[in-house]
């Protein structure tokens, strides 16, 4: 009996809750760790980035206006659905990162756990980094963290799932909306994650995932005047390394045009299995301080 011909998936972008192909019509071949062709991924263009920013901005008001409890629930739901699809992600991580099944399984588990960890922060960060200030006068004075707005994220190039989740979750759990450029050579876990997000109560546009080249799309996002912050982590791992450094500088210069908050790339891609610091979240929040007189 002849082997069944399998039905392959078209790997698309995730923008505004929909799964469009790249506006440009371009795609690029994705290979596994051994160099075998796996799929064609959509090659996001600057116009896709533009559309993603529009979608993210549109979603920002609603998402940032949700209660922290609700955002926690939504993120926890993402973790549930990711866990549910564990086998699919194990395969994707294996393919992308060339890991054994058990190592890849550990990565997926860590990604799920990371989502759960961040979900719990939604309604705690305000208490940890905000608070009342005892001013020298008859005033009630309270500082609270608020999301900065639309955050562009250049996701890590190596850690295609755990790294991605580790840079995305802190952005959205704090109420921002995100435009993420996935790992260029390892985009498939990102596309799968988009499918998880689409079925996890995450409102459309809160997370937009673009597969493609950070070096091409990054400058458009860094210069975009309606993007409030950018995480440059993904320049690390671009080759050659000097090109990554130069790109990081260029992007930081471009980001100065509207004074985006910039999370600089670390010297090397970090070990994402370590527990993250609060800075992963606080880099993308604004402290707002409200004064009110106390009188009768």
């Amino acid at each position: 009996m002849a082997a069944r011909i399998d039905v392959r998936k078209t790997y698309k972008l995730y923008v505004g809750g929909a799964f469009p192909r790249s506006e440009s019509g371009y795609s690029y071949p994705v290979e596994d760790a051994k160099g075998t062709f796996v799929a064609n991924a959509a090659l996001a263009s600057r116009k896709d980035a533009r559309d993603a920013v529009v979608a993210a901005r549109k979603a920002f008001g609603g998402w940032s206006g949700r209660t922290a409890y609700n955002r926690a629930q939504v993120l926890y739901r993402v973790a549930e659905v990711l866990e549910d699809r564990r086998p699919q992600f194990v395969v994707a991580v294996q393919q992308s990162e060339g890991l054994s099944a058990s190592r890849a399984g550990a990565v997926v588990d860590a990604a799920v756990d990371r989502l759960v960890w961040y979900a719990g922060w939604a309604d705690k960060l305000t208490q940890v980094v905000g608070g009342a200030n005892p001013v020298a006068g008859p005033f009630f004075n309270l500082s609270t963290p608020e999301p900065t707005g639309v955050v562009a994220v250049l996701a890590p190039q190596e850690s295609s799932l755990l790294g991605l989740v580790s840079v995305l979750a802190p952005v959205v759990v704090t109420g921002n909306s995100a435009v993420v450029v996935s790992s260029f050579r390892r985009p498939l876990p990102a596309v799968n994650l988009a499918e998880v997000l689409a079925t996890s109560d995450v409102p459309g546009g809160v997370v937009n995932l673009l597969t493609g080249d950070a070096a091409t799309i990054g400058p458009w996002l860094a210069a975009h005047m309606d993007v409030n912050a950018i995480d440059l982590g993904g320049v690390r791992g671009l080759e050659p390394a000097e090109a990554g450094d130069a790109l990081a500088t260029d992007l930081e210069v471009a980001a100065a045009d509207n004074l985006k908050r910039v999370r600089r790339a670390p010297a090397a891609e970090p070990d994402f299995t370590a527990t993250p610091g609060l800075d992963t979240m606080t880099d993308f929040v604004e402290i707002k301080t409200v004064w009110h007189p106390m009188g009768v």
Binding site: N133, V135, F139, E286, I287, K288, W291
Partner: peptide
């Protein structure tokens, strides 16, 4: 106050400063 994109919101007062109170801007204000 929650809707305003501003680092300091003075409600029923204005231009008050105190060493204990964080000050700084959103967007192009810093």
């Amino acid at each position: 106050a929650s809707q305003l994109k501003a680092g300091v919101v003075w409600a029923n007062t204005f231009n008050k400063f105190d060493p204990t109170s964080p000050f700084g801007g959103y967007k192009e204000s810093g």
